[in-house]
């Protein structure tokens, strides 16, 4: 019984982290209706930034969020302006943005490979290897902190989207761009802001997973697949979809990892992904819960 609770708790922690990794992808898809295939590679950039801030300047990964988030926010603004915006509102926007972002992903991967080689890099903070005992369950300190930050970020994001004027404008744009324009909303401004926040958030995710995962130039490819499975599972374009999808995959992987093996864990989540796609192709929350 104790181990069962322990597995559930670990699964939820992992799920929260996965949700944070995916939420930016879904935000960008939900509002701008583009698929950002470079999503995982921005996570990689965030992880490397965190790695070097820690090894060179002794900046704790959690403190690093305060730097990495705004840096990637600005990167997002620039990328939007230079690469995404010129493709919007033309013919074949979907295909072109997929190709452009995939290309951008390769550029980022190869830049990382050139600058930092293909070595796996990890950091050892004062939390590494530590666990906290909560009600008899031993939870990894790094994962617990990561989870707490994910919850805070999710709550802040939810509040901003649902209860502020700017959030209402973002939701309006996601639902009808023409009507939003007629009501005086600058759609392009909302797009660039959303894209920037989406990239900033995945950068922030890079900070908080740096104490848990290794970083290497193609680490984004792994997390990209994961994030896509999560958002499709939870419901494409829906904010809560990323949270639900993240939790499910986190739980499934943890259970499968304990019962079978870590390699099989991913097979299990992909299997579940296929089953849900067959049964409910619009994802668990489907379209009903879009931002």
């Amino acid at each position: 019984m104790e181990t069962f609770l322990q597995i559930i708790a670990s699964g939820i922690l992992l799920g929260g982290i996965y949700a944070l990794i995916s939420v930016g992808l879904n935000l960008i898809f939900g509002v701008i209706k583009i698929v950002n295939l470079a999503h995982g590679d921005f996570l990689m950039v965030g992880m490397y930034l965190t790695f070097f801030l820690f090894t060179l300047y002794k900046i704790n990964p959690y403190t690093a969020t305060l730097l990495v988030f705004p840096i990637l926010l600005v990167v997002g603004l620039v990328i939007f302006r230079l690469i995404i915006k010129p493709l919007l509102g033309k013919s074949e926007t979907e295909v072109n943005t997929i190709l452009a972002s995939a290309g951008l992903g390769y550029v980022l991967q190869n830049l990382a490979l050139m600058l930092w080689k293909s070595d796996f890099r990890a950091i050892e903070t004062n939390l590494t290897g530590k666990s906290i005992n909560i009600g008899g369950m031993m939870l990894s300190s790094g994962r617990l902190w990561a989870f707490i930050i994910c919850v805070v970020v999710a709550l802040v994001l939810y509040y901003l989207l649902m209860y502020t004027k700017l959030g209402a404008q973002v939701r309006a744009v996601s639902q009808d761009t023409d009507a939003a324009t007629l009501m005086g909303i600058n759609v392009n401004m909302i797009y660039s802001l959303t894209f920037a926040v989406g990239i900033g958030l995945v950068g922030l995710a890079g900070c908080i997973i740096m104490p848990i995962f290794n970083v290497y130039p193609t680490v984004g490819t792994y997390f990209n697949t994961l994030a896509f499975v999560i958002v499709v599972l939870g419901g494409l374009g829906s904010f809560t979809g990323a949270l639900v999808g993240g939790l499910i995959i986190g739980l499934v992987e943890t259970f499968a990892g304990v019962m079978a093996s870590a390699e099989l864990a991913q097979v299990f989540s992909l299997l579940l992904f296929l089953i849900i796609l067959f049964v409910k192709p619009e994802g668990i929350l489907g379209k009903a819960a879009r931002v």
Partner: peptide, 24 residues
């Protein structure tokens, strides 16, 4: 005047097919 600023200049349209924000 950019389209999104025309409402502030006093020109507003109720579009064909209502075009409300359905999830609000």
């Amino acid at each position: 005047v950019p389209a999104y600023n025309r409402a502030k200049h006093g020109i507003v349209m109720v579009p064909e097919g209502r075009r409300l924000f359905p999830k609000m």
